[in-house]
């Protein structure tokens, strides 16, 4: 019995140690802190985009998790006044982040260098409202990491966001979202955003 107990304790200790050194145990994780996030808004006869290069995220191929967030105050549309309007609309003081957390529902071959279509399901949160969504994208094994490109549409009213107005013209409640990022292997990145 003593031998059994010692063996079990050894396994548990190893298990615990492994959890406290996730970088070593999660060699298939990739991260970014400077991905591109872009939205496109439309009003009649006029379209404008807002972009940020502060998209932060992590993809873990070992458990298929995808985790991204963006500080919404880093979005810029090219006009300072419009940026301020956007922040008021999104209430960024109270809800500073747009977040997605989900899992791949299609396989990804990490050994192939061909762009692969992937589908991710998960929860998208913005303005304090959470909604389950499915996102189609492309993942490609490239030199230095993996490249992610994805697009989807977001309906503002689904997230309790009142579409803003430019004078009397209402901004379309459907917004086109695009993200693009090169994610680097987690252990190679000194600026690891993951807290241990």
């Amino acid at each position: 019995m003593n031998s059994y107990r010692s063996h079990l304790l050894l396994v548990l200790a190893g298990f615990l140690l492994c959890h406290h050194a996730p970088a070593e145990c999660a060699a298939q994780a990739y991260i970014t802190g400077n991905g591109l996030a872009e939205f496109t808004s439309s009003v009649p006869l006029y379209t404008f985009t807002g972009t940020s290069e502060k998209l932060t995220g992590r993809i873990d191929l070992s458990d298929s998790t995808v985790d991204f967030y963006l500080d919404l105050e880093t979005l810029e549309t090219g006009i300072g006044k419009r940026d301020k309007d956007m922040r008021i609309t999104l209430e960024t003081e109270q809800y500073p982040f747009a977040e997605f957390y989900g899992k791949f529902v299609t396989p990804f071959d990490a050994n192939s260098e061909v762009p692969q279509s992937v589908m991710v399901e998960g929860a998208f949160t913005i303005h304090g409202a959470k909604k389950q969504i499915t996102v189609d994208g492309t993942l490609q094994n490239v030199e230095g990491g993996i490249r992610l490109d994805a697009e989807w549409t977001l309906n503002l009213t689904d997230y309790d966001i009142k579409p803003p107005r430019l004078l009397v013209i209402k901004v379309d409640e459907v917004q086109k979202i695009r993200i693009s990022a090169l994610l680097q292997p987690e252990e190679d990145d000194a600026a690891n955003p993951r807290e241990e």
Partner: peptide
């Protein structure tokens, strides 16, 4: 612990 680690920490830019 695993569950808590699943999401990266949210930090203001």
């Amino acid at each position: 612990h695993l569950s808590a680690q699943a999401q990266i920490d949210r930090k203001r830019a």
